[in-house]
Design a protein around this nucleic acid. Structure first.
Lengths: 342, 342
DNA sequence: TTGTACGCGTTATCAC
DNA sequence: GTGATAACGCGTACAA
């Protein structure tokens, strides 16, 4: 039992190769009778297209773009590194990438960049920006050109994307909560929650998840209001000092998003915090080192290499009209401690 | 800048296509001078063989075998499921699998099965059995037939395998230790360590890792001697009862390997263990449910789907003489709680 | 609708 | 040893 080819289909259906091709790819009108015979032959022989042979014949090149937030951001840097690394891997075969840096904080700049994409030379885009009405419109425009769109890291639930590659941030927050709860079992105290900015929906969702778990399962622990420090090192330092002073029962710090560097700096400069449990998000050079040094107790992360490869595979699958192998593409919420650091 | 083809190489080197082919595939003797010119052209143009086109031309079929322990074992069942699932994925393109169940506890049976493999119709094997001198010899025999061998789940460090797909069990034990230590921070007490059998090197390595971390970082916690219960539900029940009675300071149970079902059953039947921290290995139907029910606090696992796909990719890369994309193939030690269960 | 050249690397002939 | 040539596998695309 060998795999049937288009030739087998043509013979079985009693038509020419080209007719088979037209039916399979919907290129032009085929007499209904013939079309039906082709489809019957496909079913009967169990034909499945050999994507590699097709790509060879078509000299197919997949052209994808990544739209990422600009500015100093460790997570984005690891994503860029992963894209470059993937270039050498099997997943990126016949694939070329363009990386676009946009000022994610400025919706207009984002939209301008999205609209400036040369849609005629593009098959798919992976986008990592916050969802705004303007972004939604820009994505609708991109999609109307027949280009596939994948949301990366941050979901864009109302933009009609073809896929979301990333973790469920609500669950990520719940994971942090469960971890804090178990690390502090039987203890009473408060938890300081910090983030760079609550504008990103990620942080909001994580905060919800955190509170949900803590209030339901660990009522002895109290979360303090979220502190946003907007890239202001001074501010986080002051806030931390104040929080330590005002909350003698402070037991932990949860850093929900970017800005781990300043948070860790502030922690180092502060006295009386040696026993604090500290949990942060994202595995980067900074958090990795902090984990090794014992400054962080655990990191909640998503595997960035996997994330990028997954986005690429999904975009390719969409282009090929192929099924997505869900089990492989699922991005997991990872808990990383010093001992299982990779 | 397009990808160079064999034709480009021939032109650049000033030789014929046939000579290029002879050099690239080592088919026949080529005058050293010409061979060098071909190699220089390959380097200069950055030629990389298009594996897909080559496989198409060769009508390549990869034939792999998985050798797995027989008998009731949830981990193995999930591996088998993952193999079947991978059959439908891109990684398994042009690939066919044979699954061999062997009585892993009987070295002779294992070797008989390995020796019974039809080496002439095989390109690679993934093997999951304990290492014994007999197994080592059998693997040497397989390798001498030019077949690639990957150790799966359990490393076979002295058998000259081409690769090990699995986690470092020493680190896995350390991870469990760190988790227990942090879950029980500031507490004094003892930890019950159970496994089905300490014969498997996995359990031994995990135990070492556990003790290493606990003794170095969490001296307040004491580990009890490992209890092996050899598939004996009665035994684990008795042992647990005894341990609870003899150690009023018992704080946690760590299940190092297979046999989670009986361990959990015993725990359910035992009174006075509601506050115990329980950590187990491997994500299976049983441990998943126990996690959801709150009977387990955390699971240390490896992603079985990833493990299987990785073994397949590595075997294929070996067959193709291609590089292995290490970052993708690394199997991570996962910490799974109810909140980040997938 | 059909025929056939094409893309890529491989394999086999037959000549020099 | 080396070169020229053709056929092959698969799906595609353009001329006829």
């Amino acid at each position: 039992m060998v795999k049937p080819t288009v030739h087998d289909i043509a013979r079985e259906a009693g038509v020419s190769l080209s007719t088979v091709d037209r039916v399979l790819n919907g290129r032009a009108d085929v007499r209904p009778k013939n079309a039906e015979r082709v489809k019957a032959a496909v079913r009967k022989l169990g034909y499945v297209r050999d994507t590699n042979a097709a790509n060879l014949a078509k000299q197919r090149r997949y052209k994808f773009a990544f739209v990422l937030p600009e500015g100093p951001n460790h997570l984005v840097e690891t994503i860029v590194a992963a894209i470059h690394e993937a270039t050498w891997a099997q997943v990126a075969d016949r694939t070329e990438f363009r990386i676009l840096s946009v000022n994610a904080a400025d919706p207009h700049a984002v939209v301008d960049n999205l609209n400036a994409l040369d849609l005629s030379s593009l098959d798919g885009v992976a986008i990592m920006v916050p969802e705004t009405p303007q972004v939604r419109d820009a994505i609708a425009h991109i999609k109307s050109a027949g280009i596939y769109v994948v949301a990366l890291v941050s979901d864009l639930p109302n933009s009609g994307c073809d896929y979301f590659a990333g973790i469920d941030n609500f669950s990520a927050g719940k994971t942090a909560g469960a971890l804090l709860g178990k690390f502090l079992r039987n203890e009473t105290g408060s938890i300081l929650v910090v983030t760079n900015s609550m504008v990103a929906r990620d942080s909001i969702e994580r905060r919800f998840g955190l509170d949900e778990v803590l209030s339901r399962e660990f009522p002895l622990l109290k979360t303090l209001p979220t502190i946003e420090f907007h890239d202001d090192a001074e501010r986080i330092r002051e806030t931390l000092g104040h929080a330590v002073g005002a909350n003698p029962d402070l037991k932990a710090v949860y850093s929900m998003g970017s800005g781990n560097t300043v948070m860790l700096d502030a922690l180092r400069a502060q006295s009386g915090v040696e026993d604090l449990i500290v949990i942060a998000h994202d595995l980067t050079a900074v958090t990795r080192q902090a984990l090794l040094d014992g400054e962080l107790d655990a990191i909640i992360a998503q595997n960035v290499g996997h994330l990028v490869r997954s986005a690429i595979r999904v975009l390719r699958a969409k282009c090929d009209g192929a099924d997505i192998y869900e089990a492989q593409e699922k991005i997991r919420i990872e808990i990383i401690m010093r001992e299982n650091l990779y």
